[in-house]
Design a protein around this nucleic acid. Sequence first.
DNA 1: ATAAAATTTAAACAGTTGTTTAAAACACTT
DNA 2: AAGTGTTTTAAACAACTGTTTAAATTTTAT
Lengths: 208, 208
Amino acid sequence: MTRNNTNTDIDNTTEEKIKKAARAVFTGKGYAAAKVRDIAAEANINVALVNYYFRSKEKLFEIIMDETIKIHVEKIQNVINDESSTLTTKVEAIVEHYTGMLIANPELPYFFVNEIISGSNKLPKMISENKLFKNSYFLKQLQALQKEGKMPFHPVNILVNLLGLIVFPFLARPILVKSGTLQAEEFKLIIAERKKLVPMWLMQIINQ
Amino acid sequence: MTRNNTNTDIDNTTEEKIKKAARAVFTGKGYAAAKVRDIAAEANINVALVNYYFRSKEKLFEIIMDETIKIHVEKIQNVINDESSTLTTKVEAIVEHYTGMLIANPELPYFFVNEIISGSNKLPKMISENKLFKNSYFLKQLQALQKEGKMPFHPVNILVNLLGLIVFPFLARPILVKSGTLQAEEFKLIIAERKKLVPMWLMQIINQ
DNA sequence: ATAAAATTTAAACAGTTGTTTAAAACACTT
DNA sequence: AAGTGTTTTAAACAACTGTTTAAATTTTAT
């Protein structure tokens, strides 16, 4: 069905062009507002090819979704289950990786929010299947802190705070910039600063 | 055009029924996925009435948007410009108010995210017109702290952290619950706890 | 009670949407 | 060069979408 292509050379196949375009259009406007003809135009291909290669708009979205989730779930899995690194190191690694990723793809949070709105359960499923947080060494380290009495609250708060401090600025960015609260260049600087600040703040929160 | 109705009695007019339904459907699935017929069904009225009362889907959305933004901008304006309250009191008031508001309307963050995605500039415009943050007494208090050397970073970080810590759990809720990381009842408890925790954490961050 | 105005309705409209079709263009083998 | 399977294309399809229309119904004023 699809052309044979080695992974080494640049994926310039129609299939890959469609996926790339779909990623851009889906993350840019969300599933419902993203039209198949928008994706085709973005990819410079005929509309029918989207269905030829991916059967339906929904299937295409699912594939994009699956791949995006998989990349980020696998990455965080490696970090939070490293038994040789301290809590501080883990937090720093998570902040570093996800901030970098968000700088490269600032619209990604909207993509995930949209997936939540649309009620698709891929992301929760992948998290629960892998017992991502529940079985993590990261959680064990937090629970140890809890026993020492240094953290008088549910460990999930740390997860939520960490991700919130990383992700939220990117969600708020258009508002901050358009409202004149921050200039585009200022925003970049602040995000760069936050790479060091967020881990510091988080360790303060757990009295470390 | 519209029926005369005093503000005192319950707004049971067709106009108000449509607005209520529209609020639910727009926040539930976002602008593009929300169909005029969905709104009409939710309101138990004929489709044509939506256009009869609001001229178009877009105008209806704008009205809902304007009202929603106005309510929350005005509320926060009162809190952050109170010259008689301390920073701690302000933070506590903001957390208390917005957490309460989010408990009552947990889908509201999706509504705002959607407005950002759709590229409408109403929210930024209202913020910049009112110079909400820039002219606030809250900012002056933060800048005073900065001069004392207690806060070695841009004050906007505090705004972002505060809102992020309040809002992000609600954005992540479906994932947390569906993935089995948290049960629905646990989530409620944690949110309640966070009403006290978030102000505490935030004051820790600014070394107060 | 009657006329005028406002509201509601079912139906239709024109444009859009995801998808399918059938033919054309292309690549590859023999 | 002919035959094969694959890829691309333009066109069409049917369902859906926001909106309009014209008639029916209800409300209001006289």
